[in-house]
Amino acid sequence: MTVMSYLGAIGAAQREAMDADERVIIIGEDVEANVYGTTGGGKSRSDKGDFLQRYGKNRIRNTPISEEGIVGAAAGAAMTGLRPIVDLSYSSFLYMAMDQFVNQVAKNRYMFGGQASMPVVFRSAMFYGLNTGAHHSDRPYPMFMNVPGLKIIAPATPADAKGLLRSAVDSDDPILSFEACLLWSSKEDVDENEFWVPLGVARTARVGTDVTVVAISSSVPEAVAAAEELAKEGVSVEVIDPRTLVPLDRDAILRSVAKTGRLVVAEPAHRTCGAAAEISALVAEEIFDSLKAPIVRVTAPDMQIPFSPSLEKQMYPTKATIAAAIRRVVDLPALQPVAAAV
């Protein structure tokens, strides 16, 4: 075990994957100079050019700023023997390549009757909460959940970032990894040996009996903090981190809610048609009779991300808004007016 940051763990996974298989390449804007911190050293952001020296220009490739061309080329490369990891930097840039994601990456295996293999990972960082304005702050994973054929991961801890990325690189299905910048510097003990976190298996971040909080990405640590606070008042909160959004570990969610009878879902994406909406619908459809209280979603509202820090910090689930939602489902009086984001 060694202490790794979330970003360092991603770098470590990339290094392991590059070492393990010659067919793995990394392409993206500014990857050669390690601008985004995952093509450098193993533990933290380190010397620039580290991967470039180690693996050479054939396997570490700077691209032009041509997202559509990059994503399509990565798909074509994956169909013909490579296993590319594509660093798309900001998740808002995925829109530039929407046609390639939806019409080629997601559809080719099915459309061609299984002839195409699509072993490619598209990594992008969600830069929300950092006052970068509306164009750089998106959390677009729900719209990709609506595209059959893609698999989607959203790690919330350094260990999951490392283990899920290894599984993603080894998968013959296309994977989109949505990483949260707010988590980049979070640290924990991570196995420095190779390990794989299986896709489609949720993690129970905290065990509890009264309420289930399903939390996604940076909402996970907020949910755990809220759970700890409520524990002091005698409310036992279970926190489930799906980790993989497609395929979703439905059983883990249903098992937990069947046990607790109460569900709060917290995520940083927009409210309408978000992952929280899907998870809520799943529980309502499958185990309605187990519910002791209405489901509550804690999400970002359906609006643009404002620049000013005083406005932006209200946008995403926090310990306080998640705690308020938990109070609601267990019928505790609210401590303070429930914030707009609930």
Binding site: G72, T80, L82
Partner: peptide, 8 residues
Amino acid sequence: PIANGAAL
């Protein structure tokens, strides 16, 4: 770009 990727 699919063919371009095959060329890559």
